[in-house]
Amino acid sequence: MIRRALVLVLLAVLGALFAALWLGFTPAEELGLTGRYYAEHTAPDLGAANLVTAIIVTYRGLDTLGEVTVLFLSAAIVGLVLAGGRPAARRKPPVPAGELLATGSRLLVPLILLLGAYVIVNGHLTPGGGFQGGAILASGTLLLLLAEPLKRFSHGLITRIESLSGATFVALGLLGLVFAGGFLDNRLLPVGTLGELFSAGLMPVISVLIGLKVGAEFSSMLASLSETEDS
């Protein structure tokens, strides 16, 4: 079969390339220019302990805004693509979850949300931040969906959270442009002392906004996928 042979040839070429890269790879010993800048300046200038979050939220905040927008667009397109369809062939109604899963989800969902909040709020101190926390919040939604597959979600609430946090995000960015060094400059609020919860200026606030937005976007994706049933 000629197609499979072509695929194998392609993969062999790619594999040879990868092998050459692997053999020639030596880990760097010193930080590069940008890495050195981030390592030196993040803590004194921005007051953030987690460099990765600092990059995502402040140094490359505009990228993050764009990324959140991409995510929003893909969630919206998923909703659109799935909403227009004619009703699918009737399936058997889903088997309801057992009592234990229902009770367990009532117990665990608040805890999952709490963990998400912790990860979001402490983004500038410990590993975490808006994206991780948002995914955890959406996991809470997922557990709800698993425990009660027929339950309708209030799309209104999700959409409102989503758009409100998005608008606040942009507004804060513009405020930074006016009152501080530039778009999304986090020194709008005092930088504070390194290691405290209320430090790093605007960073926790922006993390919260990103977290809410990402969580709402993932949740609306899940909800629109699960409601294709009887649309």
Partner: peptide, 10 residues
């Protein structure tokens, strides 16, 4: 302690 037996039961 809470999640492990739950997943086993489900």
């Amino acid at each position: 302690l809470f999640t492990n037996p739950l997943s086993a039961q489900v």
